[in-house]
């Protein structure tokens, strides 16, 4: 539960951002992040909340572990925890998903 999963901000509406997690679009809350975020920024998400904007120069490095975990098939527990973290964000509105 201390895992935070990185995702790319697609759009922002008040305190809610639509975030792309490795191809899955979900809504993440922005109540506790300490910087303004906009489309194209990467954020670290934990149980449905963005907790940190990832500095531009560090994005690739931050994505690597999660990409590998998600690509690996099966019930690996680390991958499960990553999926759980993504699950913690809410389903984006269907029309939003369709536009994606």
């Amino acid at each position: 539960m201390c895992l935070g999963v990185p995702g790319k901000v697609v759009s922002v509406d008040g305190q809610v951002a639509l975030v792309d997690f490795f191809g899955v679009r979900r809504e993440t809350r922005l109540d506790v992040i300490d910087e303004a975020v906009g489309p194209g920024d990467y954020v670290l998400n934990h149980v449905g909340f963005a907790i940190r904007k990832i500095p531009a120069g560090d994005i690739q490095e931050t994505l690597s572990l999660y990409e590998i975990l998600l690509r690996e098939a099966g019930g690996d527990m680390m991958a499960d925890d990553v999926r759980g973290e993504i699950e913690a964000s809410r389903d984006a509105a269907p029309e939003e998903a369709a536009r994606a």
Partner: peptide
Amino acid sequence: ASGFETTAVATAAVVLQ
């Protein structure tokens, strides 16, 4: 609600809604 401070922050944010 369980979890360390990182997770407690999410609970706090929800309580403040």
